[in-house]
């Protein structure tokens, strides 16, 4: 697990404290009932805080799973 993934899992864990690390890795909006619009906005706020990036809320519809979020953060070349 690289450092970025560890930080990402920590972010997810803050919003979905009931999920294990393995469940987080495979999490998506369909399978996690707690992942509603409120959780999505909270997750975005936490990602912005943790990685210092500005996420356009228009991109929310594509951030529907852990893998999608991971790809999004990687794509935006986050190193902080």
């Amino acid at each position: 697990m690289d450092e970025m993934e560890t930080r990402l899992i920590r972010c997810f864990s803050s919003v979905f404290p009931d999920l294990t690390t393995e469940q987080i890795r495979s999490a998506d909006m369909e399978t996690v009932p707690a992942w509603d619009s409120l959780a999505a906005v909270t997750l975005v706020a936490i990602l912005q805080e943790e990685f210092g990036l500005q996420i356009n809320l228009m991109d929310l519809p594509e951030l529907v799973s852990f893998v999608a979020v991971q790809n999004y953060v990687r794509k935006h070349n986050v190193v902080s």
Binding site: R10, C11, S14, V15, P17, T42, A45, I46, E49
Partner: peptide, 11 residues
């Protein structure tokens, strides 16, 4: 306090 800390305290 950041949001992660706030969520952790609240939970």
């Amino acid at each position: 306090m950041n949001l992660v800390e706030a969520l952790a305290i609240s939970k």
